[in-house]
Design a protein around this nucleic acid. Structure first.
Lengths: 94, 94
DNA sequence: ATAAACAAGTTTATATTATAAACCAAATTT
DNA sequence: AAATTTGGTTTATAATATAAACTTGTTTAT
């Protein structure tokens, strides 16, 4: 009746990150931080978890001389996001 | 951009309880436990939190000789549920 | 009548999670 | 060259979720 909600996605900040990434090719740390309003520490941790789950890829490079961490959604991440939305609907739409 | 998700409702079990109660006049502990598949201990704690938040009312009585705890959604609970759904949509529908 | 098993929860202990504070290295500004 | 800013990471703490253990009373079996 109530399907299990993927605990990786059932987190306000991680969900926001995935939601953001679902709409774009990729996004860098600073942009995600700004868009979500998260603190850097929290975002760093949550990005690690999403990455460890295989839901996003993280590439570390430089923009000019400044370090720049770029994230993008993996196909598994997108599928997990869709599954999560479907599961949620069981909770919110009856 | 990403609205805050009410932490009282952003919990798998509490959300299931509210979702269940949103569809009925009232429901008792045992029924909620069975429908959600929760353990009694977990359900007891989460019902307390929902009650403390004013989202549900809890009435303790007897069904025959057996104790029976009956829960129902308050108007505030229903409104919080609706707000939560609206907030969620900002995360899942773009 | 008494012991064993069951029902309906509650309390408490533990594991997990979320979050911010403190920190670090390099770059930029003054 | 000192101070500040950028772009993060690590670590410590607070909050949450969850199950295990317990309680109170009831029903069933002996």
């Amino acid at each position: 009746m109530f399907p299990k909600l993927d605990p990786i996605l059932h987190s306000e900040l991680r969900l926001a990150v995935i939601s953001l990434l679902a709409g774009v090719e990729s996004a860098d740390f600073t942009y995600i931080k700004q868009q979500t309003g998260a603190t850097a520490g929290n975002l760093s941790v949550q990005i690690d978890k999403l990455s460890a789950a295989g839901y996003i890829t993280v590439e570390k490079g430089f923009k000019g001389k400044m370090p720049c961490t770029t994230c993008s959604l993996t196909p598994e991440g997108l599928e997990a996001f869709r599954n999560y939305i479907d599961a949620l609907k069981e909770y919110i739409s009856h």
